[in-house]
Design a protein around this nucleic acid. Structure first.
Length: 888
RNA sequence: GGGAGGUUAGCUCAGCGGUAGAGCACCUGUCUUACAAGCAGGGGGUCGUGGGUUCAAGUCCCUCACCUCCCACCA
């Protein structure tokens, strides 16, 4: 097939993807004898569109999968979508409100009605994200696509919930929870984010106390004042009960307690305790058996207990209450104060802490058998990472992980939204409760109204996706039996790498470890690769309000091609580091795609139409061909090692540099010399080396490499080709150095030409005195001639040819060379040679200083000393040569 | 308040114990029949500060300064 001028990415990509998919290349076989390598795709929201966070995730995972597939593993990449409980329900509710004018969709449609609308919306929009995942070139196994609301996943959720309940790891209790009055649901501690604001800090008179607060309205719910046990200012009051009459409001009864947690140095040392609306205060109240007095309701308005303020919003009540306090002379002072506002990470609305009966996971109860011990969930989470069973990259994230575990409290898992896995608990009458997948036989059972935190089901993702769907619906089988009989689970779990953003280490990665170790006795994955955030050129988050720096991956796929986008996201990126993406980067990557394409055109021409004989390394004689084979295999060895360490950014760059400068700029140019290009062996070398570059590049830029592969008539598809070996990496060492010195010679002569301002088209006369590798240099003479545009080349010995006013000279450790230049600028040349002389002298001085140092010779590694000696000798020779030239 | 990371060429970043690197940007030349989305050549860094360890230190240790992020309801 003929090569077009450019790789027409937007005409070819979809077609290439279709060929991969239809060929079955994405599919994995649970019955194969190859080692398994599995990646579970972090499921994008079913209703979302592709953004750069998805793009980087898909690229990195596809890289790993394609590499391991080529390297001979049974590689499985499980795609899927997430029901994203809160986010999705919210989107649909807003849609119904704005587009259909339904003010309160929940009450208007009822539970079943609303769920039907959400499900329909999901079904409709799921295809969008699917096609966008495809557009990224993702080689995932679509036959195994999963959705977090699939029936078999629901079974897994219910089973795990039930078992945890029976093990005492799940309990229901009335505790302080984070309430989002806007979304009307609880959220977990990790779903809160904080915003620094300047708030007012009020100091109130409180009987004999002065008490500080940024939320005066909650003080209506105070039941105590806490002071530090050693604080003598207040010790006389400890144990007493005082009555605080609020102006214009209810009189409250306040106990005075002594608690270690109070900082006597802060404020007045007296802390107003609001057990119903503060986590810390709730804990103090528990320690001292204090009563709870809720004053804020779930709608965010004051309760009747707030007296005259009842019915007001929190902010209204604050304003009114402060005014009344001031009027009554109870407001001591008001200061500005930096405060952290708690917001829900979804709705960005303030969180209201309040007491509510919810389902929790107990992270401290030792109930998990792990390696012969009974551990708490916290301990297992710590153990698997500390022992190295699970490795987190970058490594320093492990410390973050441990720190999170240390501060972890029981996890509130119930939500008051409707979209999600419903809590698998059934009630009858006032007393009966049943925990299980389905309601028990008999009338009157009513399922718990709440749904589970979306991360509860996501936490099972590595294995719930591998459960056989049919077996999972067989209620006669236990979960253990289902797992034991599921071929995919047996073959592909634990997964190899979990790749995701570091921003969801806690939300998801930690919870997968928690739930999977408990539920299956296995780790969910062996390694975690955490990528950083994709930022704009200025290091800021991309927003549509800054269109000049914001990048939409879908636009880039269209204009620059998926390969260019993929490459730009990977080159220079490393685990755990935020990454600045700009159009310049994408364009630079597009340049590489184009370079590959053009190199392919030249390779095609070089190979011609005759069949290319297989490569026989023993029959390759030309040093440049040998050098190319060796360099290529060295690259393979380096790249393979880096891939196994999950280092990609650096690797892409390494391949690019080698391909571009060694293969394109030197080797392909050298082939234009008939003495090399027409050698019979050369076609085999070209075929072999370009073939290797295509394989190495393929995981990064799958489309263009596959297209080239096809166009060159290579067998099968590149996606299924084997990863190359590096058998030739150590061959022909000395000769290889000869070619390296040839490359330096070419560069130096070109530099002389440029310095002498010789027109590129004007041929020159050149003299060369080889000092080492002479045979190689002479064997490659034709290459030298072409690359420097040499008219006459003289191989010489002795000083004479390098002296006089008509030659410009360059000196290297391996040779001396001169360009005949009758009109040279003698002063400029002398200045240059003197500069070289000075540099060499400095270098030699350094080496000699070391060698004269007895400590260096005695203590440095022998090879370092040997190298210093050899270098010193060579530098000395070069200096001598320079000195003769300078007439010294 | 606790924890982590960063500070290397104009910009973005590699390098982590043995003569300072890449890409982009910049300067000069060049449309050479794969590629001007190219080719050739070039300039540019006392590797944040101050100490220390070592024969040898961007590279290891400590101090300080500045930046970034995470965690923490000093009410």
């Amino acid at each position: 097939m003929a090569f077009s001028q450019y790789f027409e990415h937007h005409e070819r990509e979809a077609e290439i993807y279709r060929r991969w998919e239809e060929s079955g290349a994405f599919g994995a076989d649970a019955g194969s004898g190859r080692p398994a390598f599995t990646v579970s795709m972090p499921p994008p929201n079913a209703t979302g569109t592709l953004h750069l966070g998805h793009a980087i995730m898909l690229v990195l995972e596809d890289l790993m999968i394609r590499y391991r597939r080529m390297a001979g593993d049974e590689a499985l990449w499980v795609p899927g979508t997430d029901h994203a409980a809160i986010a999705t329900e919210n989107v649909v509710i807003k849609k119904l409100q704005t587009e259909e004018g339904i003010a309160d969709p929940r009450s208007a449609l009822g539970r079943e009605g609303l769920l039907a609308r959400i499900a329909a919306f999901v079904a409709e929009s799921q295809s969008t994200i699917r096609s966008q995942v495809r557009a990224m070139g993702s080689s995932c196994d679509w036959s195994r696509e999963r959705y977090t609301m699939d029936p078999q996943l629901n079974r897994c959720v219910a089973e795990v919930f039930g078992r945890m309940f029976r093990d005492g790891l799940i309990y229901r209790g009335a505790r302080i929870i984070n309430w989002d009055p806007g979304l009307q649901t609880t959220v977990s501690d990790d779903e809160i984010e904080y915003k620094e604001v300047t708030a007012k800090f009020y100091t109130l008179r409180y009987g004999p106390f002065l008490v500080g607060t940024s939320r005066p309205e909650t003080k209506l719910g105070d039941t105590a004042v806490a002071v530090h046990p050693g604080d003598e200012r207040w010790s006389q009051y400890v144990g007493r009960t005082i009555r605080v009459p609020w102006p214009n409001g209810p009189e409250i009864e306040i106990q005075v307690v002594a608690d270690e947690s109070v900082d006597p140095a802060f404020g007045t040392g007296a802390l107003g305790v609001t057990p119903a609306h503060s986590q810390v205060d709730f804990e103090i109240a528990q320690r001292h058996g204090l009563p709870y007095l809720p004053v804020i309701g779930e709608d965010g308005r004051m309760l009747p207990a707030a007296g005259p303020y009842a019915g007001m919003t929190v902010l209204e009540a604050r304003e009114a209450f402060v005014r009344d306090l001031e009027a009554a002379g109870l407001l001591e002072k008001v200061e500005s104060y930096p405060q952290r506002l708690s917001l829900c990470y979804r709705s960005k609305q303030p969180i209201e802490p309040l007491i509510k009966a919810q389902w929790f996971i107990d992270v401290n109860r030792p109930a998990v058998p792990w390696k012969g011990k009974l551990l708490s969930l916290k301990q297992v989470m710590r153990e698997v990472v500390a022992s190295g069973d699970v490795e987190i990259l970058p490594r320093h994230e492990e410390k973050t992980y441990f720190h999170w575990i240390d501060n972890l409290r029981d996890w509130c898992i119930s939500r008051q939204i409707w979209w999600g896995h419903r809590v698998p608990v059934y009630y009858r009458g006032g007393q009966e409760m049943y925990v299980g997948h389905r309601a028990p036989e008999g009338p009157g059972w009513r399922q718990d109204e709440d749904t589970l935190d979306t991360w509860f089901s996501s936490a099972l993702w590595t294995w719930s996706t591998l459960v056989d769907p049919a077996l999972a619906l067989d209620r006669d089988l236990s979960l253990e039996e289902v797992l034991a009989k599921s071929a995919d689970y047996q073959k592909f779990h634990p997964t190899g790498v979990m790749e995701t953003g570091y921003d969801i280490l806690f939300f998801w990665v930690a919870r997968m470890i928690l739930m999977t170790t408990y539920a299956t006795g296995q780790i969910p994955f062996r390694r975690v690769y955490l990528h950083g955030l994709i930022l704009d050129r200025d290091g800021e988050k991309m927003t549509k309000s800054k269109p000049e720096t914001a990048i939409d991956p879908l636009d880039e796929i269209h204009t620059n091609g998926t390969d260019a986008l993929r490459l730009s996201l990977v080159i220079g990126n490393s685990a755990g580091t935020d990454f600045r993406l700009s159009r310049e980067r994408i364009e630079a990557s597009r340049g590489l795609v184009n370079k590959l394409w053009n190199a392919a055109k030249l390779v095609e021409r070089t190979l011609g139409t005759e069949p290319v004989p297989p490569l026989d390394p023993a029959a390759v004689t030309h040093p440049v061909n040998r050098w190319m084979l060796v360099e290529c295999d060295r690259l393979v060895a380096a790249v393979t090692a880096r891939f196994d360490e999950l280092v990609f950014g650096d690797t892409a760059e390494q391949i690019r540099t080698a391909f571009w400068s060694q293969f394109c700029d030197f080797y392909l140019e050298a082939l234009k010399v008939p003495e090399l290009g027409n050698l019979a062996e050369t076609r085999a070398v070209v075929q072999r080396t370009f073939d290797v570059y295509l394989r190495l590049f393929h995981p990064f830029v799958p489309f263009v490499t596959e297209e080239i592969w096809t166009n060159l008539g290579r067998p099968g598809m590149l996606i299924r080709a084997a990863w190359p070996g590096a058998e030739l990496a150590d061959r022909w060492g000395e000769e290889n150095q000869g070619v390296e010195s040839l490359i330096r010679l070419v560069a130096e002569l070109r530099r002389l030409r440029a310095e002498l301002k010789i027109e590129p088209k004007a041929p020159v006369t050149v003299r060369v005195e080889p000092r080492s590798g002479a045979a190689t240099l002479r064997a490659a003479e034709a290459v030298l001639r072409r690359m420097v545009n040499v008219e006459a080349l003289e191989w010489v010995a002795g000083d004479a040819p390098f002296t006089g006013d008509d030659v410009a000279v360059a000196v290297d450790l391996a040779w001396r060379a001169a360009v005949l230049a009758p009109e040279k600028d003698a002063a400029a040349e002398r200045a240059r040679l003197e500069k070289e002389h000075a540099e060499a002298t400095k270098r030699l001085a350094g080496l000699e200083r070391n060698l004269a140092n007895a400590d260096f010779v005695a203590k440095a590694k022998p090879e370092v000393v040997a190298k210093a000696r050899a270098d010193a000798e060579q530098v000395r020779a070069a200096i001598a040569a320079l000195e003769r030239l300078l007439g010294g």
